[in-house]
Design a protein around this nucleic acid. Sequence first.
DNA 1: CCTATTTTATGAGCACGCTCATATATCTCT
DNA 2: AGAGATATATGAGCGTGCTCATAAAATAGG
Lengths: 201, 201
Amino acid sequence: MRITAAEKHATRRRIVETARELFRTHGFDATTTRDIARAAEIAAGTLFNYFDSKEAVAVTLAAEALHKARTAFGNRPVEGTLEEELFALVAAEMRHLKPMRQFLTPLLEVAFTPLASTKQAAGHEALRIEHLEIVVVIARRHGLAEIPTLSLQAYWALYTGVLAFWTADKSPKQEDTLALLDQSLNMFVAWLRHAAGESAT
Amino acid sequence: MRITAAEKHATRRRIVETARELFRTHGFDATTTRDIARAAEIAAGTLFNYFDSKEAVAVTLAAEALHKARTAFGNRPVEGTLEEELFALVAAEMRHLKPMRQFLTPLLEVAFTPLASTKQAAGHEALRIEHLEIVVVIARRHGLAEIPTLSLQAYWALYTGVLAFWTADKSPKQEDTLALLDQSLNMFVAWLRHAAGESAT
DNA sequence: CCTATTTTATGAGCACGCTCATATATCTCT
DNA sequence: AGAGATATATGAGCGTGCTCATAAAATAGG
């Protein structure tokens, strides 16, 4: 068997879209890889020719959602303070990640942990790097030329911690998470300004 | 079959200690629940009369390690700045958690996520609450009477983020994590002082 | 003591994620 | 067009964490 690149791509897409729908309607845990395979009209084992694991499918969904969120954010008119812009960025991401909130925790583990390179960090590292690059760009626009690596790592710790909080947030409209995000970003930005002020002295 | 409370307790201990040893020597993933059961001289199913899951056994190990760490920390002479004391607390915890660093991430998910109450958050919530109580006590000793709930949540986001970083830290003596921890705590304490200063005005 | 009741231990068995030998389809070269 | 080489799909099968009907042991009541 040999199949055109187009067909291969089509199968991959079908797996992703099928999984998206099944995860949404039945949840991540209640959806078996056999369910996905059957609905996508492939054999059970074929799914694993396209993805390393069931989680990898979910990571793809999350990555696509984040990509869309960032694209949408990038086309937005620039306005507001640094805190407000960062808030808008993360809020946009959360809006797009909302359908996968319930199974985000396993993904945080795999894809969001810094330095995560147990097997192949290829696509996973990218998730982190792309986000941090946007943060750096935004900060630069607000007069903070250089952010120390350590501060960026602290930011990432905060960011993942907030997302973890989010996964368990029971408040009606996740307003608790938004409050925490606001607080966290204020803290981070104050720290950045503090550090910048000191180095300028 | 009915067995004295003492025997029950003994069996539970045997499971925990057996698991500790097997996890240490073979790793969490490579140790099956059947391995633990065999080594503890019980049937495969019996393990699940004592623990809800394999992870729950690991959570018990982590909880015990944290308890020891905090006891050791509590008996320590009080000295140093607020930042230094918080650093010492977390560093002590990490020292005791070191043997389970490799399987800490699944535990972060289950036991460290705030508001985590999927099933029974009984022992899990406790892990978080106990830590935060110590933080509050230390802060109070340093003249910060009240820490807003939101700030504590931000602290927890940082704390879990740092632990997540730690699980993947490849630097020889985990010095990267210690640097990140230092930075994070400095940021947090600066924020606390900032808030306290404002409210005093 | 002997029976009824309660509690725990047991291990066969389930469903799952994932693997791998094999079958099958396509491409390449003559 | 035919034969070999190559890439992919397939599904039986494995080991896993965990469940559950049953057996076995201890207690309680008479």
